[in-house]
Amino acid sequence: MTEEERDTEGVRLQKVLANAGVASRRVCEQYIAEGRVRVNGTVVTELGSRIDPTSDLVDVDGTAIQLDATKRYVVLNKPTGVVSSMKDEQGRPDLRRFTQDWPERLYNVGRLDAETSGLLVLTNDGDLAHVLAHPSFGVTKVYIAKVTGRVSPQTIARLTKGVELEDGPIAADKARLLDASAGGGTSLVELTLHSGRNRIVRRMMAEVGHPVVDLVRRQFGPLHLGTLPAGRARELTTVERGALLTLSRRDAAAPDEPAADH
């Protein structure tokens, strides 16, 4: 939409922001006047500005605002034993049971293997799903791995320095030992990775001699699992949606590569 078209068409920017739950219309007008609002990357300070909520991208203080009310964003704490698919051809438990509370057809962003539990995003926003699941964007994920044996500080250092796997070297962005005496000769390790390679956490820990017993993804980009029980799903908060959309808009163009599970 051109500036001339915005003068006669579309919806006033402050109304769009208020309808999106940013703040009251009067406060939104103040945000605009203070230069805190951008439309398609350009600061807009004119209160009479009109936009097209279906196509224009708006952010306030650098945080993306969801204008399309038809888009749904849900976080699930996937339990073990469930495959990351909306329909499993082998008849295994899938994700459909967790989407029944929403009328939209939701799909998972990326995957977690059946024996890995934790944070999985479900949405009907295909553009966002493509960006978030794409290896080229390097979205950070945080995992807690229960592994066999007592992990040493030297092993933690090795994980961040890098290990050689059959498909090439890999290094954790961060690694720390949470508990070296978790009982039964096991340790708890927290790994932060941006890799999308297949079952990467399990393969890294096996390579350093500490096979994974249990694996949970606690964080995906700006989203945290928090206290959400296993097998439960909830809609993202306004703040979480803004953080997720901001992340997805960093660079909407990426080469096609499949997203892998862990």
Rank of each mutant, 00 (worst) to 15 (best):
L57Q: 11
D214I: 10
W102S: 02
D94V: 05
V189A: 06
G185C: 10
R96I: 13
V121G: 03
L177R: 01
E4I: 03
V139H: 00
A260C: 11
S195V: 09
A182M: 08
N108F: 13
V212F: 01
G10V: 09
D7A: 14
R105N: 13
T237P: 01
A206P: 08
L67E: 01
R72G: 04
T155M: 08
T238S: 06
L132Q: 11
A252Q: 07
L122I: 07
P79G: 03
T155V: 15
I65C: 04
A114Y: 09
V239S: 14
R36E: 05
E257S: 08
S136F: 10
A180S: 15
V212N: 00
V16P: 00
V212H: 00
A20Y: 10
K161D: 14
A64N: 08
L106Q: 03
D127S: 08
E190F: 12
T63V: 13
E164S: 13
E3M: 06
R249D: 10
G10M: 02
K146C: 07
S136W: 09
E46H: 08
V11N: 03
R72H: 11
G41S: 07
E257M: 06
A206C: 08
E240H: 06
Q90W: 14
G48I: 07
E235L: 11
V131M: 07
E3N: 07
L244A: 03
V131P: 07
L178R: 15
S85C: 10
R249M: 12
T160L: 02
R92Y: 15
G48P: 05
S248Q: 12
V37F: 00
G126K: 04
T160P: 01
D261Q: 09
A145R: 00
D68M: 13
H224D: 12
L178A: 13
A64G: 11
V16G: 03
R249I: 12
V121N: 03
H194N: 13
L225M: 05
A233D: 03
N108Q: 14
A64W: 03
V27F: 02
A20E: 02
T8F: 11
K15W: 02
F220Y: 14
A133V: 07
T246Q: 03
D52G: 04
G226Q: 14
G35D: 14
P229R: 07
G183Y: 11
S117P: 01
S195P: 11
V44F: 05
L215T: 01
R199L: 05
G226F: 09
V22E: 04
R249T: 13
V151L: 05
H130Y: 14
R36A: 13
E240R: 05
T123R: 08
D261C: 06
T237N: 05
R12M: 04
V27Y: 00
L67I: 09
I200T: 13
G110T: 03
E240G: 06
L177D: 00
Y143W: 11
A253V: 14
E164D: 15
D214C: 10
R111T: 11
A243N: 09
I32L: 08
G126M: 09
G118N: 06
R232G: 07
R241M: 12
L76Y: 05
D56K: 04
I200A: 14
T227R: 10
S181H: 13
V163D: 01
L165E: 00
N19S: 15
R250I: 07
Q14M: 05
G221S: 04
L225G: 07
N198Q: 14
A260W: 11
L95P: 01
N19E: 15
